[in-house]
């Protein structure tokens, strides 16, 4: 591997780590600083973790134990140390080992955040993966066909449908889908039925089918439009004319020369979408009652469980960063101009 490629990978990797750290800092600052700015003292913050009936002394001790008296950067540093090295948490009712990566301790649920979050991850991940596969297949094929048959009935119908798909709010689509397919027709299971893949793959897919379709609907529409536009642009390029002038079959021209270039920008967008999807699954998960990260974030915010919120946000940040990294590396594989300058 040439050094330029290695340095490219290292640079991307550093950028990804940097991104995660910055996001964690911002989240940390927001959730720890905002209440202070709003006038809350360390004691008021600590009251959230002890019962209402606690004495002023208990509150102070708790606040101290939680590090609320330390300056922000010390608190962040402690937290970061926990993430990297693991830590021991004094819950007041004894200490709890929290191995790395320790995202903190949820005093509300009386357990470390990491396992909770990891518990939810498969749900969100399943939702995202399935939907992504579905929307890629549908979006790309519809887009390609539309581009190749530009102006045909298929093209116009698909694009009208895509426009409608893009403009539909997902929460609404989800509820309508649930109402019709589960409650009216009974074809799909009702909301809230999640079976882990490891337990029963068929049940897993069956339970997620409706959320997948709902989520994929929105994205396929968007991807169909993107693919069509990219494909039309690429097929008008000079190098496509060259490929035809060589005497290549039209099918080869489209697949080998056209698609590869047309799909490049889509890879980027897909990486971003997929990363963000994990984060933005909130609405879908809420609509379908799935116990994923999105739902957890909603619950945690509602109950002011800051370590939990932070944990979810960090995990999502890691996801976005990883997705970005994968895209960048993929990009270098696809487009030689990126790696050989």
């Amino acid at each position: 591997m040439p050094t330029s490629v290695i340095s490219y990978i290292i640079r991307r990797l550093l950028a990804a780590v940097g991104l995660v750290v910055v996001i964690s800092m911002i989240t940390f600052a927001i959730f720890y600083l905002l209440p202070r700015l709003a006038g809350a003292s360390p004691e008021t913050l600590a009251t959230r973790y002890v019962g209402r009936a606690a004495t002023a002394d208990t509150v102070r001790v708790t606040a101290e134990r939680l590090g609320f008296y330390d300056p922000l950067y010390v608190q962040y540093w402690d937290w970061l140390k926990g993430v990297v090295l693991g830590t021991t948490i004094d819950t007041g009712a004894g200490t709890v080992q929290c191995p790395a990566p320790c995202l903190g301790y949820s005093f509300r649920n009386q357990e470390p955040v990491t396992p909770q979050v990891l518990d939810r991850l498969p749900v969100s991940f399943s939702l995202a993966i399935g939907a992504a596969v579905l929307w890629l297949i549908v979006g790309l094929s519809v887009g390609i066909l539309s581009a190749l048959r530009r102006g045909s009935f298929f093209d116009r119908a698909a694009m009208t449908f895509a426009l409608a798909g893009v403009s539909m709010p997902i929460f609404w689509t989800g509820l309508v889908a649930l109402a019709i397919f589960s409650y009216q027709l009974g074809i799909t299971p009702p909301g809230g039925s999640y079976t882990p893949f490891t337990e029963n793959p068929v049940q897993w897919a069956y339970g997620l089918l409706l959320p997948w379709i709902t989520l994929a609907l929105l994205f396929s529409a968007q991807y169909a439009r993107l693919t069509r536009a990219g494909m039309l642009e690429t097929m008008g390029e000079d190098y496509i004319r060259t490929a035809r002038a060589k005497g290549l079959r039209e099918r080869t021209v489209v697949t080998k020369h056209g698609l590869r270039a047309a799909l490049t920008p889509i890879v980027t967008i897909f990486g971003l979408d997929f990363g963000l999807l994990i984060g933005s699954a909130v609405l879908t998960e809420t609509a379908f009652g799935l116990p994923g990260l999105g739902q957890m974030a909603v619950d945690a915010t509602g109950s002011n469980d800051l370590p939990q919120v932070l944990g979810v946000v960090l995990l999502i940040a890691v996801f976005v960063a990883v997705a970005n990294l994968v895209v960048d590396l993929l990009y270098a594989v696809i487009d030689p101009r990126v790696r050989t300058r």
């Binding site: 390029e237 000079d238 190098y239 004319r241 060259t242 490929a243 035809r244 002038a245 060589k246 005497g247 290549l248 079959r249 020369h257 590869r260 270039a261 696809i334 487009d335 030689p336 101009r337």
Partner: peptide, 25 residues
Amino acid sequence: VRRLRGQKMAMIFQDPLSAMHPFYT
């Protein structure tokens, strides 16, 4: 006609940068 293209008749174009596929050697 396709079979003749590239074999019996060939063509070169004005802008040699855009006429070659950027992703293949």
